[in-house]
Write a protein that binds this DNA or RNA. Structure first.
Lengths: 252, 252
DNA sequence: CGAAGTATTGACTTGTTTCAATGTTAGTGG
DNA sequence: CCACTAACATTGAAACAAGTCAATACTTCG
């Protein structure tokens, strides 16, 4: 049984290896980080708009959403983060948060002081570039969201989003023959895609009736990847994955 | 009369100073960069989806759009870039472009080899962090776009976008009593906001009738900043500007 | 069992698109 | 200097995708 700290180390090493092969120096540096791991319940905002965090975090288990609220209190989900993601890497160089981070399901999150990350980046050009790249891919996900929300109708929008989720889960080895576990309710998917729960419900029925996906109680299975990709006009380039099919199990 | 190279240097120094005060070492490093400056006509795609650029660029004059196309050839403008922006800074660490860069108006663009930028970042932690921060603010602009396109109706969406343009132009000293020069046609604003030209036209009439803006032939003037901010639910935090009111003139 | 959260369905409403025509402006060449 | 052209802006009417409202069912869990 691994300690939580080892688990964070293994996951980070796996994630960074997806960008480039790490040398022994980098692996050593990573392994000496000391993480503080927290268990958080569902629906908890753990970093607030306006905060000036002194740590960044790595999602170990569960799902986290970036959110922003309208004047009327309506919530927009800006992006969805799964194990292996570092959803507030930006706070390393942009002190003040311009959005919230909240848990969707119960999650396990590892925190690391900015000081330690900065130290790492100062010592290793490779790690510096890799963390930077990680934050750039985050921006690429945002661009994909802008594209789909503006250009696709409700059905395709959902298809595009589910493609993204499928490939991102796959990249961290979280997809098996049964699909992947995915705790967003239809209401929350609506908040991601700028649609109402009613639209999501109807669109999900469309995708199911076309035998593209199966979708029930926090679990999603893509039955026809190519079909879903076509339906959602999904071009996975923006994920910039060096390889897709390694499993987290193999890495840890 | 400054050379184009000096102009690029001055603009970059000004821009980076908006993040943090640069020391003499950093200013010296920047001043020794050698830029290649190009004049490009309007509507020209100068970096293509799939390209692997060996340079990044700095917009000196004119407006540049990041674009992505649907299967049906419909164009989405992902973001709009004005003088002082480095719209493909990401290519420094994400080799392959996942979108196009095209000019909107006639532009002047300065190119710098990735090699030189990487060298700079290796030598100076400060510059490394500053360029990184620049790319993170780019991501923050994306988040603002996701928010406005999903949560605001046509009128507010346009108001929000015009606020963003107003403050970003102001930050580089491009706003005077007459407003600022802005070459996006109503059709292109539609491609930014996920609306049709008809909607933009009607929304712009709304904003004009409320005396919030004046808008004619490539020129925009915000008459009532506070009013427009309120109307568009605009929270400028995401711009992360250290100061807004320095002028480019003063810096160069 | 009751309660809360989530999913589903139908009827009606609305903001935006689509289509199509007309007006305006700036630039070009005779 | 004016006719011609292309790009851009404006307007009205009809169509439609998604929203709203509201009722009902299913699931999970204490």
């Amino acid at each position: 049984m691994k300690s939580a700290n080892d688990q964070a180390t293994a996951l980070l090493e796996f994630r960074l290896s997806a960008h480039r092969t790490l040398g022994p120096k980098e692996r050593d540096l990573i392994s000496h980080l000391s993480w503080r791991v927290e268990e958080l319940p569902a629906r908890q905002t753990f970093i607030h708009d306006g905060d000036k965090p002194a740590h960044s975090c790595l999602v170990l288990a569960g799902v986290v959403a970036r959110t922003q609220y309208t004047a009327g209190g309506q919530r927009q989900i800006l992006s969805v983060h799964i194990p292996g993601d570092m959803p507030d890497l930006q706070s390393l160089h942009i002190g003040r948060m311009d959005h919230d981070l909240e848990t969707v399901s119960a999650t396990q999150i590892a925190f690391i002081p900015h000081k330690d990350l900065n130290h790492l980046c100062a010592i290793s050009q490779t790690l510096n570039a890799t963390f930077w790249r990680e934050s750039l891919i985050d921006a690429a996900l945002h661009r994909a969201a802008i594209f789909r929300n503006a250009q696709l109708d409700a059905d395709s929008r959902l298809a595009h989003f589910l493609c993204e989720m499928h490939f991102r889960h796959k990249a961290v080895g979280l997809v098996d023959e049964e699909g992947f576990s995915f705790p967003l309710s239809q209401e929350l998917m609506g908040e991601v895609l700028g649609l109402t729960i009613v639209s999501i419900n109807r669109s999900s029925q469309t995708l199911r009736s076309l035998d593209l996906i199966r979708m029930q109680k926090g679990h999603i299975q893509v039955l026809d990847v190519d079909g879903l990709v076509r339906f959602g006009q999904f071009d996975g380039t923006f994920l910039h994955q060096r390889f897709d099919h390694e499993t987290l199990a193999r890495a840890s």
